[in-house]
Nucleic acid binder design. Structure first.
Lengths: 189, 189
DNA sequence: CGCCAATACTCAACTTGTTGAATAGTCCTA
DNA sequence: TAGGACTATTCAACAAGTTGAGTATTGGCG
């Protein structure tokens, strides 16, 4: 039940519509989880059925009505209980790594192109996350914010996302350099 | 078909048994993919049926017989074609991040304990990966190895795994510090 | 006026990954 | 000499994630 708890966490201190959640969990700012709309709407229905969240219909003019969700007390309990259950270690599982692992059997130009693309994606995401971090921090410096803000969870996980992207970027560039260097030296001599 | 290509990549330059593959893809040295034995045996059967790998029975004395697999020419083609297909961006999806995101709603001692556990796991994995890297490199220094070795893919992805663990470790320690600091200051005043 | 994007969702089919249990022989340790 | 660990694999049930299509309305652009 990964998504379930991610949704509960997102609803921790604010009411959100299904649609807003799809935006949060979309490529954009899913700094701690990712999911497509279909998954989210399904999960919202299930979580409401199970009493962990409650939704209310909001009638809108000029656009479809929507349903706003908030976390319930049983939802808070579930989240707290989840936090105490052991979590299993995380693993890398990335197509691109497989391609680099098999680089010698593949067209190296294709692999290099994909590494370059990832670098660009990572750069864009870092820029976005930097904005998010600055917005969360407001006008405080980081240390002050972390010491005094009422909630720091979102800031910490956002930082994790940034680190992840930064590291990915660095590695992609390094791997590309290595592969390029080898391709050149084979071609040249 | 993530696992399929990961298996093909692992068989790129050596023949391996299903059991050896389960060890590779187990917690141990799955520096680019992870899978449980059941998944692997299923995938091996399917890939053999599809002609991407071929297996041969090896009769053993004193232990169960085993099946050794090697990649076929169609398998190599498939791997090369896979490397040229675009790969989708990677996302973080980690229980522990959800817990940290929701830290304020959870028992902070429990979250801190899990962060500490992760730090230990990461340390162990880093030590292991360092051994693997040294073994792959042999007696050469890194730069020389990367320039001259016949295959560098496994080395590059192993490095990626190490970076990932290192970054995870650093972040876990930082997040734990932040949360501990806040817990103390709330308790103390 | 027509088209596209955005809002706000739903249904269905499918693929992947997870969990638990089982088999069966050998080797090592207590 | 019993019990566990290691080798080597299989079957089945289920949960989670992916993909593709479809609905309906509004607002803006050219």
């Amino acid at each position: 039940m990964g998504l379930r708890h991610a949704v509960l966490a997102a609803l921790l201190d604010r009411e959100l519509s299904g649609y807003q959640l799809t935006k949060l969990f979309d490529v954009g700012v899913a700094d701690f989880w990712y999911a497509v709309p279909q998954q989210l709407y399904t999960e919202l229905t299930r979580s409401e059925r199970d009493g962990l969240i409650s939704g209310r219909e909001v009638i809108q003019h000029g656009r479809p009505n929507k349903r706003m969700y908030r976390i319930t007390d049983p939802g808070l309990d579930e989240l707290a209980a989840f936090a105490e259950r052991p979590s299993k270690p995380q693993f890398l599982r990335d197509d691109l790594l497989v391609k680099v692992y098999a680089a010698e059997a593949a067209d190296s130009a294709a692999v290099l192109a994909q590494l370059a693309e990832r670098v660009e994606q990572a750069r864009a995401k870092i820029a976005l996350l930097d904005q998010v971090l600055a917005r969360i921090r407001g006008d405080q410096d980081e240390q002050r914010f972390l010491a005094t803000a009422p909630r720091v969870g979102p800031y910490l996980t956002c930082h994790r996302g940034r680190l992840f992207e930064q590291e990915h970027l660095t590695w992609c560039e390094w791997a590309a350099d290595v592969l390029r260097g080898r391709a050149d030296s084979h071609a040249g001599g």
